[in-house]
Design a protein around this nucleic acid. Structure first.
Lengths: 248, 248
DNA sequence: AGCGTAGGGATTGTTGAACAATCCTGCAAG
DNA sequence: CTTGCAGGATTGTTCAACAATCCCTACGCT
């Protein structure tokens, strides 16, 4: 069960080191600034529609305007910012149409990944589902502690790891962007509990189906899962949208 | 056959104008430089593996280094360039693994789009398939004139327009990137005719199936189409890959 | 009063030069 | 043959300035 040979073990070690180096080696200023902004956006500190002033942020982040613009570009291509020519960068305001678009893609990608697992079942290493298991338990723990944003994060990670089973770098990248945009939508909704609670259990069910190698049923469940989630999000979105942004 | 109603005609006209305005209005320097570089890459003037020197390109493109870097960022996120920290930007060198990855995504997206057309068949306007028809004829015309790169371009546009039928902005964007990367692969291959020729006819067949509203069969055909194309590309890729880059 | 228009102020787009950090090359020493 | 160390070239980042554009307000006209 311990992934076998010495050569593969050494390769895995080298790959781990390489990943760490790449992480420490990152383009510093620009990406570091992007990291801070990304967190601010995904955690809701910067609400949708907000404008990000250049001069203001250069002082806060202590980077030059050019570097800050490069950070903007990074986040723009993650879908977390939008450029309006000669007007600045803004946190995008997504609507129902975007929800439908995002979920259509989620269904296509995630369901295909799960369904595709059947073909390559034998070559799947043993511990491959471990990250999914961790995410399920993290979500349950966070729910017990009433930390619903953390539940949302664990849910995101679950689906990211699910896509990761396909070993497709481009699917991973796309999913990263999709989930980032989804986070944008979550922060418009002020009822994280009702939104996330049902999916803790469904994630566990999905995991158990995968573990039992019932891929076809897992795919079907996931499809319905995502349809339900889409409907719930649209419903919650309409409620909040009508009540307006006034929460004080 | 003249797309019918007055209101839809006017909307289409407005949309066309808006697109033109947006095209002229673009961020000028950075995006203009990116356009030139994009063309150079997709047309093969800049071969995979080539490094793009900053000082050199600032003189040719007549833009500042900072602006050029912004252009680099744009193309990086389209997959047409890769950054190597402190070493510069390069045209990426894709391999068989990337072919498999790209085609997996193409299959998932394109087949789903075609299959999804069945559900929304009634709401599809009449002239919606027109761009596809134009692309088919463009490919046939280019083939008659032995202009095989043009055949490849028409083929790309066909698939881009196919995805466009889904009215999903994110699918459009993803497809744009996927096809751009695919172009990168085509230029490693020196036999464009054998590669593109079979698909002229298959594109027409696909178009006719769509026109006849036989979506399910169209989806099945497209699936096999993409599998064949993948195999052909891998085969041609191996031939060239073994012979090495020496062509002088 | 209503409407189109010009001006001021603020913000973004772009440039050029400068400095620090890093990489590559070649050469010398072990 | 490998190791260590300059030297030169390239990239990463900053800064200050100017040009272009947008927003808002106030003015003048019908």
């Amino acid at each position: 069960m311990t992934t076998g040979g010495e050569e593969t073990g050494r390769q895995a070690w080298l790959r781990t080191v390489a990943a760490d180096v790449a992480r420490l080696d990152r383009s510093s200023s620009a990406e570091r600034a992007a990291d801070i902004l990304r967190r601010s956006i995904t955690e809701g500190a910067l609400p949708p529609g907000a404008q990000l002033s250049e001069v203001e942020l250069t002082e806060v982040l202590e980077v030059s305007r050019n570097t800050l613009r490069e950070a903007f570009r990074l986040l723009t291509h993650e879908g977390l910012l939008v450029y309006k020519l000669h007007r600045g960068v803004f946190v995008p305001e997504l609507d129902e149409h975007d929800v439908i678009d995002l979920y259509r893609l989620r269904r296509v990608l995630e369901v295909d990944v799960v369904r595709g697992l059947a073909d390559r079942d034998p070559e799947l290493p043993a511990g491959r589902l471990e990250p999914l298991h961790d995410d399920v338990e993290a979500a349950e723990a966070a729910a017990s502690a009433d930390r619903w944003p953390a539940v949302g994060t664990a849910n995101m990670r679950f689906h990211q790891h699910l896509i990761g089973l396909a070993d497709s770098a481009r699917m991973d990248a796309m999913t990263g962007r999709l989930l980032a945009e989804l986070r944008l939508l979550f922060h418009v909704i002020a009822t994280p509990r009702e939104l996330h609670e049902p999916y803790i259990e469904r994630n566990r069910g999905l995991f158990e189906l995968l573990e039992a190698r019932k891929y076809e049923q897992a795919a079907a469940d996931l499809h319905q899962y995502l349809l339900d989630s889409e409907q719930a999000l649209i419903a919650a979105f309409r409620d909040k949208g009508l009540r307006g942004p006034a929460t004080t």
